[in-house]
Amino acid sequence: MSGVAAPPLVRVAGVSKSYRRGGQVVPVLADITLDIPGGAFLGLMGPSGSGKSTLLNLIAGIDKPDAGSIAVAGVDITRLPEAELADWRAANVGFIFQFYNLMPVLSALENVELPLTLARMDRRERRERAQATLELVGLGDRMEHFPSELSGGQQQRVAIARAIVTDPRILVADEPTGDLDRHSAEEILALMDRLNVDLGKTIVMVTHDRRAAERAHSIMHLEKGELFAHEELPR
């Protein structure tokens, strides 16, 4: 990374979000401001219900804030119309979920190919890229397996392959190790670390797990809708 102070990849500015439950308005995020530089590996921690997932969803462009703006590489995604926002996500965001969210009826390879069907790409190129990506996550020998035939850790690796196959700028991960045993979790975290360091992916990871958070290069805490502590961890 260059030493020159580049503008941050993600600029969250004055973002608020509340939900309506019954007749009641539940504030979740209040005037959040946050810059995420390109190439960062940010861990987002906080108690349950503090709004971690909500913030992550806003950055990933699957939810809209009530106020404020979120600019990614200069594009204010809060102003994009829905269909364009979908295209933006396809090109710019990779999703990693706690429960992997693979399509059970598709094989590992087909799951990884799925986001590529949204890119202009012929069948063969699609297949080759998906295969290469599965090999990258260490599942070259499991391509034809269906999710139900894979362990949790393997499924999450397929999900990670799906997230990076389109070569997005940002990876968002909501408790990616939350459903895994210690060993598999470590493998997944090591893989994410490689994606960050070797491939330069910007990663925002929500986690409850202190040990997982320590794999991130910086950690932020959300509490009662406010982003307050910001501790830089030594690499």
């Binding site: 829905e82 090109a91 999703f95 969210n101 399509m103």
Partner: peptide
């Protein structure tokens, strides 16, 4: 439902 949400997140449109 969760699959639908996933597909949308991946960038598939409502249509």
């Amino acid at each position: 439902t969760a699959e639908i949400g996933t597909l949308r997140a991946l960038g598939f449109r409502r249509a």
